[in-house]
Structure formats: structure tokens, C-alpha cells
Amino acid sequence: MAELEVQIKEENLVYRKSPLLTDKIMHYCPGCSHGTVHKLVAEVIDELGIQEKTIGVSPVGCSVFAYNYLHIDWSQAAHGRACAVATGIKRTNPDKMVFTYQGDGDLAAIGTAETIHACNRGENIAVIFINNAIYGMTGGQMAPTTLIGMKTATSPYGRDPKIHGFPYKIADIVSQLSGTCYVTRQSVHTPAAVRKTKAAIKKAFENAMAGKGLSFVEVVSTCNSGWKMSPVDANKWMEENLVPFYPLGDIKG
């Protein structure tokens, strides 16, 4: 059967890069989960046909430049303030689909107050939370979500709760708040996981447009540079270490 050659034509197309993604080469390290999640956001916006309605809010952290990669309007927030910025946009533009895209340092450390209160007010926005348990952009320092024993630039002997405190599960916390309608924890380390994350993002965006309250999608992710391992090993390490502490699946809604 080796003589059978698949013809490269539109009717045989199964998958191609989303037209919502720009042609800029992403600045992320090879294998970074950010690229995969960006792609899913682009695909969801495209499939829902809401490019003209969507406004994204990018954080401070590696994904600060998310605005370079999607053909939508973006506002870049001060560190931790994405949920407040999104609140300002959504309240004054109720017909827009507003989402934030934030890392663990931005959302769960410096921006905890803004995150919790946007969730509690039930702002009709979607929050995408990339949790890779480390500060990537500043060079691999400890995050609020860094696991006990995990070595980072600011916990070089491993995170010791007596010195550094404990990691916490902010998705579980926001699931307790009346304003959240959907809280889920997903990952992008296998094709099946990527499909589930895409469905979660789609549901979150649909909730926001339907005015059901705040949807919170945590994506347990890798930072292979910060963790100092190869992208493939990082996916394995994530499955063996992060996922037991941050179990995958829907928490609410």
C-alpha cells in the first residue's frame, strides 16, 4: 500500500493552524504549554464566531505578549490586575466576550484579591489560569502553587513550608464563591487532555456570553525551562507530581 499518497488538498484537510492565530513566532520556550492553550483560545473564538466581540486581557508574566498572537483586541494589565481590568471592560461593554489569561504568580499571588473579588461578584467573564507552579518570565522563582519540596530559584533547597508556606489550590477556593458558575482544572499534556481543555474553554466562553457568571479554567501546565527538563520529560513530571496535588476534572458546574 506504500504507493498510496494522500493528496494535499482542501477536502482532505483534517487540521491546520487557526486563522485567529497571527503569523508571529511565539516567544515561548520550545514545548511551553502557553502555545497550546493560546491555540485553543484561538480555535474557540473562531468556532464560536466571536472575533469581533472578544476582548482579551493579558497579564504580567510569560504570557504578557499573548496580545501578539491572536487577531483580537487586547488590553495588557498591570501585574495581578487582569480580573479588575476585565471587570472594567465587561461592565462598560456588556455585549463583549471578555476573558483574562493569567499565570500562577499573576492570578494567585499578587492578584489574589482581584481574582477572588471578580469571582465573588460573578463578573460575566472567563478566566484562563495557567498553573505551572513556577515564575517563568523572571527566571524560575517560587510561585504560590510551587509544590512542597520543589526546587526553584528562590527555594533552591526545595520548598519548605516552615520557610515558604504551603502551595494552595485557588480553583478550589473560587469554587466556593457564589459568583462562579463553572470551575474546572484541565491540562494539555496529551491529545485527549488538550481536547478536554478546549471543551472547557468553549464552555467558559459560552457561559460568559450567556451572563451566567464567572467561569474559571485552570490549566495545569509545564514550564520545562523553569523546571530544567526536556518538554517531554516535563509532561511526564507534571503528570506524576503536579496532577496528584492539582487533580484534573470539573470542580463546579
Partner: peptide, 15 residues
């Protein structure tokens, strides 16, 4: 802090 960033968000949209 939240208030001024809400201002930033709304101002981003020309409001």
C-alpha cells in the same frame, strides 16, 4: 488598586 484597574479596563474601550 482594583478601582483604578477597572478604570484602565473601561478606558481601554474608549469609555
Amino acid at each position: 488598586v482594583a478601582a483604578i484597574n477597572m478604570v484602565y479596563g473601561a478606558a481601554s474601550t474608549g469609555k
